[in-house]
Protein backbone atom coordinates (compact mmCIF):
# COMPACT_ATOMS: atom_id res chain seq x y z
CA UNK A 1 0.00 0.00 0.00
CA UNK A 2 1.47 3.30 -1.04
CA UNK A 3 0.05 6.75 -0.48
CA UNK A 4 -0.25 9.40 -3.17
CA UNK A 5 -0.56 13.13 -2.70
CA UNK A 6 -4.35 13.05 -2.59
CA UNK A 7 -4.26 10.38 0.13
CA UNK A 8 -1.92 12.57 2.15
CA UNK A 9 -4.19 15.57 1.69
CA UNK A 10 -7.22 13.55 2.80
CA UNK A 11 -5.45 12.20 5.90
CA UNK A 12 -4.18 15.67 6.75
CA UNK A 13 -7.71 17.05 6.49
CA UNK A 14 -9.10 14.30 8.72
CA UNK A 15 -6.29 15.02 11.19
CA UNK A 16 -6.78 18.78 10.94
CA UNK A 17 -3.11 19.37 10.25
CA UNK A 18 -2.32 21.90 7.56
CA UNK A 19 0.35 20.79 5.09
CA UNK A 20 1.79 23.08 2.48
CA UNK A 21 2.15 21.57 -1.01
CA UNK A 22 5.88 21.12 -0.41
CA UNK A 23 5.27 19.41 2.93
CA UNK A 24 2.76 17.13 1.28
CA UNK A 25 5.37 15.53 -0.94
CA UNK A 26 7.93 15.00 1.82
CA UNK A 27 5.20 13.73 4.15
CA UNK A 28 4.09 11.26 1.50
CA UNK A 29 7.63 9.88 1.25
CA UNK A 30 8.06 9.61 5.01
CA UNK A 31 4.67 7.98 5.54
CA UNK A 32 5.33 5.52 2.74
CA UNK A 33 8.62 4.62 4.41
CA UNK A 34 6.81 3.85 7.65
CA UNK A 35 3.99 2.01 5.90
CA UNK A 36 6.54 -0.07 4.04
CA UNK A 37 8.02 -1.06 7.38
CA UNK A 38 4.59 -1.89 8.81
CA UNK A 39 3.73 -3.92 5.74
CA UNK A 40 5.52 -7.01 7.11
CA UNK A 41 2.54 -7.58 9.41
CA UNK A 42 0.50 -8.64 6.39
CA UNK A 43 2.58 -11.78 5.96
CA UNK A 44 1.51 -13.17 9.34
CA UNK A 45 -1.33 -15.67 9.49
CA UNK A 46 -3.69 -14.42 12.19
CA UNK A 47 -6.67 -16.62 11.38
CA UNK A 48 -8.79 -17.18 14.45
CA UNK A 49 -6.75 -14.82 16.65
CA UNK A 50 -8.80 -12.49 18.83
CA UNK A 51 -7.63 -8.87 18.56
CA UNK A 52 -6.05 -7.57 21.78
CA UNK A 53 -7.23 -4.04 22.53
CA UNK A 54 -6.07 -3.86 26.15
CA UNK A 55 -2.95 -4.92 27.96
CA UNK A 56 -4.95 -6.45 30.79
CA UNK A 57 -7.86 -8.88 30.60
CA UNK A 58 -10.27 -7.29 33.04
CA UNK A 59 -13.71 -5.75 32.67
CA UNK A 60 -14.90 -2.19 33.12
CA UNK A 61 -15.25 -0.99 36.69
CA UNK A 62 -18.38 1.05 37.38
CA UNK A 63 -18.62 4.32 39.22
CA UNK A 64 -21.48 5.05 41.64
CA UNK A 65 -23.86 7.70 40.29
CA UNK A 66 -22.76 10.53 42.55
CA UNK A 67 -22.06 14.17 41.77
CA UNK A 68 -18.53 14.78 43.05
CA UNK A 69 -17.59 17.96 41.22
CA UNK A 70 -17.87 21.59 42.12
CA UNK A 71 -17.57 24.48 39.71
CA UNK A 72 -13.99 25.27 38.65
CA UNK A 73 -14.79 27.29 35.57
CA UNK A 74 -12.55 30.20 36.51
CA UNK A 75 -9.51 27.91 36.98
CA UNK A 76 -10.14 26.04 33.77
CA UNK A 77 -10.79 29.13 31.68
CA UNK A 78 -7.66 30.84 32.97
CA UNK A 79 -5.73 28.82 30.38
CA UNK A 80 -8.27 29.21 27.55
CA UNK A 81 -7.31 31.15 24.40
CA UNK A 82 -10.61 33.08 24.18
CA UNK A 83 -13.65 33.19 26.45
CA UNK A 84 -16.59 35.47 27.08
CA UNK A 85 -19.46 35.24 29.54
CA UNK A 86 -18.19 31.83 30.63
CA UNK A 87 -18.21 30.46 27.08
CA UNK A 88 -15.27 29.30 24.98
CA UNK A 89 -15.23 31.34 21.79
CA UNK A 90 -14.43 29.91 18.37
CA UNK A 91 -14.81 31.18 14.83
CA UNK A 92 -18.44 31.17 13.82
CA UNK A 93 -19.83 27.68 13.24
CA UNK A 94 -22.30 27.45 10.38
CA UNK A 95 -24.77 24.58 10.63
Amino acid sequence: MSLNLEDVARIALLSRIELSPAERASTRDQLNGILGFIEQLQAVDTTGIEPMAHAVDVVQRLRPDVVTETDRRADFQAVAPETEAGLYLVPRVVE
Binding site: E69, R72, R73, G86
Partner: peptide, 29 residues
Protein backbone atom coordinates in the same frame (compact mmCIF):
# COMPACT_ATOMS: atom_id res chain seq x y z
CA UNK B 1 -18.86 13.17 38.48
CA UNK B 2 -20.34 16.42 37.11
CA UNK B 3 -24.02 17.13 37.59
CA UNK B 4 -26.33 16.88 34.59
CA UNK B 5 -28.97 19.22 35.99
CA UNK B 6 -30.44 21.45 33.28
CA UNK B 7 -30.02 25.21 33.24
CA UNK B 8 -26.71 25.87 35.01
CA UNK B 9 -24.53 28.85 34.07
CA UNK B 10 -22.33 28.05 31.02
CA UNK B 11 -19.45 25.67 31.72
CA UNK B 12 -20.09 25.52 35.45
CA UNK B 13 -21.04 21.86 35.21
CA UNK B 14 -18.08 20.94 33.04
CA UNK B 15 -15.26 19.39 35.04
CA UNK B 16 -11.73 18.44 33.99
CA UNK B 17 -12.96 15.26 32.30
CA UNK B 18 -15.80 17.01 30.49
CA UNK B 19 -13.58 19.73 29.05
CA UNK B 20 -10.97 17.09 28.18
CA UNK B 21 -7.99 18.54 29.98
CA UNK B 22 -4.78 16.71 29.09
CA UNK B 23 -4.43 13.50 31.13
CA UNK B 24 -8.01 13.01 32.29
CA UNK B 25 -9.78 9.67 31.95
CA UNK B 26 -13.37 8.38 31.78
CA UNK B 27 -14.99 6.03 34.31
CA UNK B 28 -18.41 4.58 33.51
CA UNK B 29 -21.46 5.53 35.58
Amino acid sequence: GSSIAFGAEPNMQANAVDIALPGVLPVLN
